[in-house]
């Protein structure tokens, strides 16, 4: 039982970390970034490069964030900016971008699985049982991430501007907020978060050009169910991630794979605005 609770908690933490970048972009820019999976992959490869350079494995996380941020800025300027008025086309264009990123990674690094040094391995005694140390660390990191994001949104100039743009972009522009700049920074931030998450999950999954893809649809569903808020995403990750663990454990690991998608579709049918808005 304790093991099940820890599985739920750690799965939720991973999902939260992986989905947060997508949510920031959707929240501020009203744009669904289907290149999210590709940015996760970039993070995984940033971790691989860290290993190749012989750096401390923890450095992979800030390094991935930096790479993601810079790439995010470039992408926003070149691809995303013309598509703000065409949200469905933006989904397609960012999907195409994901293909491009995946192919470039394949050309540079090859198709094979890459070896990445894990920062921590093994298990520790926790709540009376032995549990994966790294997964527990991920819970702490996800909590830290939630706090940092909340602080960013509520205690910084950027956060204030971003919230103004979220509420009423025209009005925000009228008040002299440079919404173009807010969008640019937001996309960079979202990409940085995605890459960081990609680096964070590498000790648990194989680093190859398809690293990010399996996470994309689940992240997307979680973000929509969350109603675009940080606590909402935490709760959505707990509920849907928890359901996934329960179904995987008691029904079938294979059906567990579609739990999030099906539950999200049903929840959104009943509450189109997501669980926690308005």
């Amino acid at each position: 039982m304790g093991g099940l609770l820890l599985d739920i908690l750690t799965t939720a933490a991973i999902l939260f970390a992986v989905a947060s970048g997508l949510m920031i972009i959707l929240g501020v820019m009203k744009l669904i970034n289907f290149a999210h999976g590709a940015f996760l992959t970039i993070g995984g490869y940033a971790a691989f490069v860290t290993t190749q350079l012989g750096w401390n494995p923890w450095l992979a996380v800030p390094f991935a964030a930096l790479v993601g941020f810079v790439l995010g800025l470039i992408v926003e300027r070149t691809i995303v900016r013309p598509l703000y008025t065409r949200p469905l086309d933006a989904i397609l264009a960012t999907w195409g971008l994901g293909i491009i990123i995946g192919q470039v990674i394949t050309i540079v690094f090859g198709r094979e699985v890459q070896f990445v040094q894990s920062p921590i391995s093994g298990a520790i005694e926790f709540l009376g049982q032995s549990y994966s140390t790294y997964r527990l660390v991920l819970v702490a990191l996800a909590a830290l991430l939630a706090v940092a994001l909340t602080a960013l949104l509520y205690f910084t100039r950027f956060g204030l501007n971003a919230r103004a743009v979220i509420m009423n972009e025209d009005l925000a522009r009228g008040l002299g907020i440079d919404s173009t700049r807010v969008r640019l920074t937001t996309f960079g931030l979202g990409a940085a978060l995605a890459s960081m998450a990609g680096a964070l999950v590498t000790p648990l999954i194989s680093v190859d050009p398809n690293l990010g893809l399996p996470w994309l649809v689940n992240s997307f569903m979680l973000v929509l169910v969350s109603g675009i808020s940080i606590p909402g995403l935490m709760v959505a990750s707990l509920i849907l991630g928890g359901a996934q663990v329960v179904v995987s454990t008691y029904v079938s690991a294979i059906l567990g794979g579609l739990t999030i998608v099906v539950l999200a579709a049903v929840i959104l049918r009943l509450r189109p605005q997501g669980l926690f808005s308005g």
């Binding site: 099940l4 599985d7 194989s206 399996p214 995987s248 690991a253 294979i254 567990g256 794979g257």
Partner: peptide, 20 residues
């Protein structure tokens, strides 16, 4: 005995079953 599809990446539940 537990299986995951070839493209599956999350073995969490299966590992917990194994341990218990």
């Amino acid at each position: 005995d537990e299986y995951l599809p070839m493209d599956g990446t999350d073995w969490t539940a299966i590992i917990s079953k194994l341990k218990s």
